[in-house]
Design a protein around this nucleic acid. Structure first.
Lengths: 219, 219
DNA sequence: TGTACATCAGTGAACGCGCGTTCACTGATGTAC
DNA sequence: TGTACATCAGTGAACGCGCGTTCACTGATGTAC
């Protein structure tokens, strides 16, 4: 990715060097992530991110124009990770699309739960997508995984009965996001549920696919 | 309406008034709503709400302990209105549950679109539900409308095939919220869609009901 | 009917605070020769 | 190999600002008698 131009990587958790000098951009992104996780996208300030990174309040201006640019960068990175996570779970529908779709749904919810800071930066921080084509593209690439999954699922149906792929992808996305947003978040605003969010999503998708005419196996 | 007790109307800043505002609590709730609509739940301050209501910064403390209590009151009122709107649309399933459910879905999305300030206070402001039993109850009452609808829908199915009502209600809620949250909001963070959000939701619910084994009419 | 009084909503000044942002600077690092 | 210099990431002090919150107060309103 473009920000690891100097080959510092900085992504691996076990990288002890460069923390003091020379890796501030990375440190600020991490600080922002930490702060968002603690107090939501609203309660994160440029100054506190600097403090958290052990740096003077003027230092961040070397790397980000302002608070919003930092936040947009967090969201951007979030979409990139989200895409990776979803693509890995989907694994091109192997060995079998239905099982892969189930993994995909679980991966979606797991991301929302284990990375609430990314997730809220991506979907709830109110960052206008129009502001950054880069951000929009990253979001589109993540959605493309869902779209690809919908395509493969639809392709298994007889052509005459095939529903519009885009619609199916949007339904799956909406249901996943709805469940993640209402019940699957990692913070205090989560609503409790008499079942696991994963079960709710899995059941919902199964019913939905059956409604499409997709022949799901029993069990 | 109850808040025009003194016939003041209380609309907008700049209205001359005496020493006593007469309706400040109401005016503050409106101001908060206006500010949330403009800048999201994050960018709303106690001080600005006071200014908007044409009152000194100390005045709000007569009515709300702090900013969060005001925000929670906005969310509370939002849930109450939401319940009213949904219940009216559902109308106890008259004349026919499926048509009524369609109205319900449309009313859900319409509320999210026309009242983005309420909606985000209710679902995105990060207000911990545990903090206020009153708020939780109001949320539960709104959800109860969906639950009642799910119940009536399920009751139309043969007993042996009846799915759990709660699950159906949660699926409908999640799908509605997902679509409202991703595509149906009134602000800049909305994602564009090659179709109306209403259509997407209606189609999703129809597919879902068919998947439950509910016999939907063609067309 | 009027007066005295209690109530309490809203005032206005003040405070400490943390934020965003700027500025001239400093000092570590890399590089040309 | 060393020196001179350019670069630029980060410093630290400073600023104006708006916020949340407090306080003694003021003045409108309702009510007891």
């Amino acid at each position: 990715m473009s920000w690891s131009k100097h080959g510092r990587g900085a992504e691996g958790p076990g990288e002890p060097r460069g923390y003091h000098h020379g890796n501030l951009k990375e440190a600020l992104l991490r600080a922002a992530l930490e702060l968002i996780a603690q107090k939501g996208p609203a309660g994160f300030t440029f100054a506190e991110a600097a403090r958290w990174a052990g740096v003077s309040p003027a230092a961040p201006y070397r790397h980000f124009r302002d608070r919003d640019e930092l936040l947009a960068n967090v969201a951007l990175r979030g979409f990139e990770r989200f895409e990776t996570v979803l693509a890995r779970a989907w694994d091109d529908g192997r060995p079998e699309p239905l099982a892969a779709l189930d993994r995909l749904g679980k991966a979606y919810l797991e991301f929302a739960r284990t990375e609430p800071a990314y997730y809220s930066a991506m979907f709830e921080a109110g960052i206008p997508l129009s502001a950054s084509p880069e951000l929009r593209d990253a979001g589109d690439r993540a959605f493309a995984v869902l779209r690809g999954a919908a395509e493969k699922i639809c392709a298994q149906m007889p052509p005459a009965k095939r529903p519009p792929t885009l619609m199916v992808a949007l339904h799956i996305w909406s249901l996943s996001h709805g469940i993640a947003s209402l019940f699957g978040r990692g913070d205090a605003a989560r609503r409790t549920l008499p079942m696991a969010a994963e079960e709710l999503l899995e059941a919902g998708i199964l019913v939905y696919l059956r409604g499409l005419g997709f022949a799901t196996k029993p069990g």
